[in-house]
Structures are given as structure tokens and as C-alpha cells.
Nucleic acid binder design. Structure first.
Lengths: 197, 197
DNA sequence: CCCCAAGTATACCGATCTGTATAGTGGACA
DNA sequence: TGTCCACTATACAGATCGGTATACTTGGGG
């Protein structure tokens, strides 16, 4: 199975497998996509696929963990662009980044939320990846809000989290146009009305 | 197939099928549950199941439409409880109702969002049910906000929608305790700060 | 009394599912 | 030159998938 800290060593074939899996899992759901299709789309035999990953479950883990890694790198790059940023501007930049990301890669909403809908066993290794992603986002907001000097950083961060998750869902379901702009507006109002310590 | 306006005639066996399907689909996901299991859990043969529904797809439609109906009835009952209610109180009551509903039936978040994650074909009949549910909720918020006399009812309603969807997701993933209370607090602040026409 | 709707019981269909087995190929590197 | 390593090709196993077929039972209403 060739693991390195729960992750798989990414040979060229393995990388193509994860890329194909990400595209197929995200578009059609995890259970709707078989390993035969993944292998075919990756231009790889099932033998190679199982030599690298050992199980479909492990491909799911790589799919989610890889996507999370890319999102974090994407977000970090967007946050570093800001020069001498006010903390409030950094919070709003998270919504802008999410809007851009979702426009490019997020037509079906949050991959973590969607995967969670298909997994019932809390012992599934993907569960930890999903939970960690949401914890990380909440802590990101908490840190940024604390920088901004808000009185109750925890509850403010949670409110931002609700707006952000709501925007992801609204975008995925096409509830109304540009939900990230709406969420960003609310976030600004929320931060503007907050008492400073 | 015995349809009545796109829906199935609910004989006793058919009702048990939908009940079993709802429990299993919601807990494990749609593609993860086979019709054999549904029939067994309903105490019904596959013959009966297919005589009533004709296809698994139709069971999915009944599952979602039935759950939506129950939610709307649940919410209507909670809203009617309020006597001589201010419109703002009615908005907050939606979040209270959602909190109560989710505590009883919503451990995995929104059934519509979860189903959407597993369906890729926009022509799937369940798609219309999902979209209609979200449209209905948005219009509900819009109507309530308009009653409250807010200046920009549409954008206020969308903000409430984001908070509500965010709370459903946060609850389903267990991101932090009592997300509906947090969403309700934000909703109140949002309504309180709104300019009246 | 007889019919009909709703149901049971059971067996089957072809397709697809995850996962394994066997045998062989081509390149990099020591 | 020889040995790994990543990979191809193909075939197969056992289970489960959605869906169908045949034959029978039961209870209530004209």
C-alpha cells in the first residue's frame, strides 16, 4: 500500500488516478463512481490502482486531503497578496477567495460536506479529513477575528463560519446569484458592528 | 407505477417502504442503499416495492418530497403557535423550529443538500424537488422580511438563507455546539440593524 | 360468490461492484 | 548485466446492483 503518514506515494500513475477520482467523485458522488471507471479515466490498469492505493477508501482519503491541501494553498496565496492588511480586510478576502475557488472548481458546493453525506461510519478515515478541514477553517476565522480585536472572537468567528458554509451550499445548489458577495456583505456588516476590546 | 400527480399511491406497504428508505437514505446516502435492503427493512417483497414505485428513482423522489412535506407542516405548526406575532419574531421562530427539527430528525444535516451531492443529472426528477424546497424557503424568508418592513427584503432574506443553510451544515458536521442558536442571534442582529421603509 | 387489489415467496437476469491473480514490459540505476 | 520499480494486459472471483417473472395467498366489496 506504500503509505507515508497515512498518505500514498504519488507516482505518475497514482497522481493521474487521484486527478480522475477528484473529477468523478466531485461531479457524481463517491458511491456512484467505480474503480474501473477511475482506472480507465486515469489511463491506468486496476492493478496499478490497487498497487498504489490498496483500496477505494484510500483513494477517497487522497481525494479529500489533496483537495483540502490545494484549497489551503490557494487561500494562503490570496491572503499573502494583501499588503499591510487590516485584519478585517483579511476576513473579507477569505470570502473573495472562496468565491473565486468555487467559480473555478466548486460548482457542486463543498466537497467535504458532499462526502460527509455519503459516509455513515465515523471510523472511516475520510471522516478525520473532513472534520479537520472544518476545524481549520473555524480556527482561521477565529484567529483573524481576534487580530481584528473583536470582543467575542469565538462567536464572531462562528457567525462568519455560518455565512461561509451557507454561501458554499447556496452556490452549489444555485439558490441565487453570487452568494459569496452576499455573505461578504454580511460579514462586513457583522465586523463593522462589533465592539472592540 | 400508479402515479397521482408524479407521486405514488400510499398503500400500507408503500408507506413502510418510504419510511425505511428515508431512514436508510438519510443515514447512509442514496447510492449506498440497495432496494433489497429497503424491501427487507420495510418487511415487504421486492415485487411489492416495484409494483408500487416502479423504480428506485421514484422511491428517492418520494423520500425527498415526503420529508419536505413533513418539514413544511412542522414549520407551519410552529409558526401558528405564535399569537399576534411580530414579523421579526416569526423569522426567529424559523430558526427555532429548524433547531428542534434537526435535533430530532436532522443529525446528518439537510437531506436535500445531501441528496444533491449524489445526483449529477439535472434531469433527475429529484432535482426539481430539491430546487423547489430551497426556493420555497427563500420565498418564506422574503415574505416574512417584507412583513417586517425591511427596506431591501430580497438581500435580507438571502442573508437569512445563508445563516440557515450554514447552521444546517454546521449541525450535520458537528462543527460547534448549537449552531442554530448562533444563526438565530445573527438573524436578530441583522433584523435589528435594518432600516425600515 | 367471485373478483380484484395488495401482498408473499422465490427464483432469476445481466450488469456492475471491489478486489485479486498471473504473466510480462521497459527504463533507470548500480 | 542484473535488479528493482512502475507499469500494462487480461482474466477471474464472489458479492451485490436494479429490475423482472411466475405462482400463490388473503381479505374486503360488488
Amino acid at each position: 500500500m506504500e503509505l507515508t503518514g497515512g498518505r500514498v506515494r504519488m507516482t505518475p500513475g497514482a497522481r493521474r488516478v487521484v486527478e480522475a477520482a477528484e473529477r468523478l467523485f466531485y461531479a457524481h458522488g463517491i458511491h456512484a463512481v467505480g474503480v474501473d471507471l477511475i482506472a480507465a479515466e486515469a489511463g491506468v490498469t486496476k492493478k496499478t490502482l490497487y498497487d498504489r492505493f490498496g483500496s477505494k477508501e484510500q483513494i477517497v482519503v487522497e481525494y479529500l486531503a489533496g483537495r483540502d491541501e490545494r484549497w489551503r494553498a490557494f487561500l494562503a496565496e490570496r491572503l499573502e497578496r494583501l499588503e499591510r492588511p487590516a485584519a478585517e480586510a483579511r476576513v473579507l478576502a477569505v470570502f473573495d477567495a472562496s468565491r473565486e475557488w468555487s467559480g473555478e472548481f466548486g460548482a457542486k458546493g463543498c466537497a467535504m460536506v458532499n462526502a460527509h453525506a455519503e459516509i455513515s461510519d465515523p471510523g472511516h478515515p475520510a471522516y478525520a479529513v473532513i472534520a479537520a478541514q472544518k476545524t481549520w477553517m473555524l480556527e482561521l476565522f477565529t484567529g483573524l477575528v481576534r487580530e481584528a480585536g473583536a470582543e467575542d472572537a469565538d462567536s464572531t468567528a462562528r457567525a462568519l463560519m455560518l455565512l461561509h458554509e451557507g454561501a458554499l451550499v447556496a452556490h452549489g445548489l444555485g439558490m441565487f446569484p453570487d452568494p459569496f458577495a452576499a455573505a461578504r456583505d454580511q460579514a462586513r456588516a457583522l465586523l463593522g458592528g462589533v465592539r472592540r476590546s
